[in-house]
Design a protein around this nucleic acid. Sequence first.
DNA 1: AATGAATGAGACTTCATTCAT
DNA 2: CATGAATGAAGTCTCATTCAT
Lengths: 196, 196, 196, 196
Amino acid sequence: MPRTPTENERIRRATTEQILKTAMTLFCEKGYYSTSIDDVAKQAQISKGLLYHYFKGKEDLLAALVDLRINDVLVVMNAAVAKTTPAEQIQHIVEGALEDVSRQPEVFRFYLNLFTQPRLDPVVAKYSQKLMDEQARQFEIQTEMFVRLGVAEPRQRSLYFSSTLQGIMLMFSTYPNSFPLEKLKAEAIAEFCNHG
Amino acid sequence: MPRTPTENERIRRATTEQILKTAMTLFCEKGYYSTSIDDVAKQAQISKGLLYHYFKGKEDLLAALVDLRINDVLVVMNAAVAKTTPAEQIQHIVEGALEDVSRQPEVFRFYLNLFTQPRLDPVVAKYSQKLMDEQARQFEIQTEMFVRLGVAEPRQRSLYFSSTLQGIMLMFSTYPNSFPLEKLKAEAIAEFCNHG
Amino acid sequence: MPRTPTENERIRRATTEQILKTAMTLFCEKGYYSTSIDDVAKQAQISKGLLYHYFKGKEDLLAALVDLRINDVLVVMNAAVAKTTPAEQIQHIVEGALEDVSRQPEVFRFYLNLFTQPRLDPVVAKYSQKLMDEQARQFEIQTEMFVRLGVAEPRQRSLYFSSTLQGIMLMFSTYPNSFPLEKLKAEAIAEFCNHG
Amino acid sequence: MPRTPTENERIRRATTEQILKTAMTLFCEKGYYSTSIDDVAKQAQISKGLLYHYFKGKEDLLAALVDLRINDVLVVMNAAVAKTTPAEQIQHIVEGALEDVSRQPEVFRFYLNLFTQPRLDPVVAKYSQKLMDEQARQFEIQTEMFVRLGVAEPRQRSLYFSSTLQGIMLMFSTYPNSFPLEKLKAEAIAEFCNHG
DNA sequence: AATGAATGAGACTTCATTCAT
DNA sequence: CATGAATGAAGTCTCATTCAT
């Protein structure tokens, strides 16, 4: 007797999630190239065939993870936009981003690694590009906040802000054990969220 | 009559350099994993066998490049240390680092990519670690500069400085065409090189 | 619907056996080093990938064959031990061993070749050692038979017996066409199976 | 100023011998296939080019060693033939052969290994065959000794004798440390050198 | 006589992907 | 939905041999 459609749907969702979670873990641990499809299937406790039933291939796995990442970042940005004053908005960006990286430094590290992938890598480059494009899009929104904040050169200030924030995230994800994240967060907020 | 040792030495040097240069170019373009030994040999216009005559393997190629990189960074730091006032020292770090990245953004990007490699990648991790260790060593020297500068919390300030600098380099190497490097350099110098 | 476990087991067994049989044949014909994995796969009519699915590598193939060999020899020895009188036991060793070599002289020759492999061969030595260890173990059992037979110096006699038997096998496998195996078998039995 | 022809001749001889000695050592230690030309040249402290100046290739090295071996065995046989009674002749074969193997068990082991090489090994087989042919030739001479000794079936007896002798050598070279060579030598002489 | 840089064929192995069931 | 046997392209590396000097 066949399973009900609802039951099937539930199984599908659970399996997909299980695969993605495993892939994320392994990619973070060993990197995209050093993780084999076999590794993912074994760790996810499913057969290789089933993995290919859910994803077109290894690359498709990466694509799905990148989409998830883009969505995560988007959520932070949307919440920031919803704030009323530009100072609060920028503060929320800082806090959201740093909270994210502090929860899972290896995950951030993995996406940063993807982000810095050489431009011609035949497989990975397009996802790297996708991340960059999304970041560029969000940068425009962020610059608008600095405009509203009334700084002299908002675009340049926005860039400087992004650089500092990215730099903090980079360094924290590199030395997660000894990095005083809270203190630097305070320092960044103090520097960028006030004006006049 | 065999070639003279001097002549052999000359040949060895030239070939080694040719190989390393080619490897660097290809790794920057396509990434370590997507570049094959065959690619390197072909592009360097030598046989695969000769490449293995000079380097133990693909990994050894990477090791040699990492050593070169570490040396490059060291040169900047040593020049900075030679300056007399701490303000000049820090300024030299900013200028040296940014000059370096602006000359060859893809090279910096490649090393940053290596730097952010997952910790368990069976091949690449150890070179990633080597870069991190060297950076940590230099960080101590830099912190001493902030001590001499007389800032309140020198270690934290040094970290914040590194974060900003790394962030600028990261963003510039990501968007080399539109990034106003000179302006952000000025902004960073203004922020970190004065006190009182 | 996936294949049943039983069906898979059947397929695995058949393929494994096919591979081992082919490897044995080729190793006997051309030797371990002159037989390539490609040769084995082609002759076994499977892909190289499948071969690696079943065996970890070329060396693993050799290991499996050595284990089979050790088992074969063990069977003869166990049957010998089961006999009641020591004379019958020794006779059974002679007959078992010679029957084995006469059926497949090249196989015996191959194992003898392995057996005489230089001690430091980086790959083959360990299997050579394994064969030697097993032979030493069986030698002890055989010596016990000569003790029961009541000869003066049983250990020495057992060694002399082994030497003669091994020598006959060596020579037969070298000149299988002209060697009067039956007659020498009779001569050996006459010499070693009586006493008093 | 060029070297004198005599001087050159001396150098040539010394170098050739050095190469052969090194090759023999390495082949015995690691086997023919696991020894590279590079190994031989390095150990012999000459350049690869020079090695190829003296020998056509790796195979030629093996050929030279096999010729040396054949000559060694021939010397023993000729000395045996020079004895007056057949019993003395056979005794000399036993003593000569066992003295040889006891002096350099690994060398004997190496030739035995060559001797048992599969018939179709594309490189090694022809030298294996050469050794076998020479052994067959000498077997005829030895059989004549048993004829003169007056045994019933001289050819069969000669074969049985060879088997025993080869077997002792095989076992001794396998367990050189614990094998009571002298005692088995005595046992063999007692068995084969008397008749009447 | 002597060197060692250079070559290239071919070996072993991995792994993303497909397919029969 | 699910399995794992099977494929083959591509990668890393070794090594006998040649060649310019």
